[in-house]
Design a protein around this nucleic acid. Structure first.
Lengths: 177, 177
DNA sequence: AAGGACATGTAACTAGTTACATGATTTG
DNA sequence: CAAATCATGTAACTAGTTACATGTCCTT
């Protein structure tokens, strides 16, 4: 069975514990969104589809007068998740407007390249800060922690790389003047 | 004026020299595609739109009986490109199925996590090889070369990180056994 | 003669974002 | 009592991919 990537995010999130659509979205927003996002308009229809396929099961769980449906993954759903995990990963996509601008920045003013590099360095440094805040809340040793470490170390590397490149360009510009 | 990202790729590619839609696509495929892709079905309609806006100018340049239109960027187009380059970069998106699988791999067999890490390491190592082949063809010192170096060094870092993480998990599994 | 590269485009589809719509509960 | 959060969903739109359609030119 070939499911959408959003389906596997849902299955994975429900494998830890049952959740409502809203809770799945919150979980995604504070974890996988850095490398795999999902919106309400993907999650809610996908939950219906997965239910029809028998991979998840929804149950009414209102909180007072507030409607609420909590979903749990079925045995068939767990099987699908494991099968997906066994297959090698395919998609790896990077979309970086910063690299695109840098690529073309011969067409800008001579200082702009250096500025762009510093902007990217600052952005990745800010990402490191943001991710570090999540770090303390996480169980060391688990896979989510390992993935978070990847995020932190990637952003450290990137911030560093851009900073070094900026210094190199600045040095070169000075030498030419 | 707010244009699509594809528009700026086209403007940037034409700033170096006039090109046909087909040549723009080839240029993208051997350079920006690693961080900004574009397909024929985006490029051809976009060229028409840019021509209507007066940012590029097309000229018939058939090769024998083979129809061909070569586009060049206008003064207004160059202005738009420079204005875009002056604005800070916004989009930075990463979509990694590998990280997603790793995130959920508690739900797989105990060995699968290590395997996934090694698969990612191999993939990024292959990317390094691929990018190195482009390296020799490029003018050192230019921005495209700088961007290529970013690609090479990122993939080296990533391959390394996954390799180290795999060894760490393997060690931990051995210690537990 | 066949296959690959050159060349231009459209149609259909898939994925994903943003805006809209509604309403309950909790917290300051 | 107002704002934030919890909760579910649809509609409209934007972006992007894949498949299709057509035809020329060059190399083997």
């Amino acid at each position: 069975m070939e499911l959408t990537s959003t389906a596997y995010v849902i299955l994975g999130m429900l494998h830890w514990r049952p959740r409502s659509g809203y809770e799945i979205k919150s979980a995604v927003d504070s974890s996988t969104r850095f490398f795999w996002a999902a919106s309400y308009s993907q999650i809610y229809p996908e939950l219906k589809r997965l239910e029809k396929l028998g991979l998840v099961e929804g149950e009414a769980a209102p909180q007072g007068g507030r409607q609420r449906r909590v979903f749990k993954v079925t045995a068939a759903g767990r099987r699908e998740l494991r099968k997906w995990l066994e297959r090698p990963a395919e998609t790896f996509e990077l979309r970086s407007e910063g690299l695109l601008k840098l690529f073309f920045s011969e067409s800008a003013s001579p200082e702009r390249g250096i500025e762009l590099l510093r902007e990217q360095a600052a952005r990745h440094a800010a990402n490191v800060e943001q991710l570090r805040e999540i770090e303390s809340e996480l169980d060391k040793g688990g896979y989510p922690y390992l993935v978070l470490r990847n995020g932190i170390e990637f952003n450290e590397w990137a911030s560093d790389w851009y900073e070094r490149a900026a210094r190199q360009l600045a040095r070169r510009a000075k030498a030419a003047a």
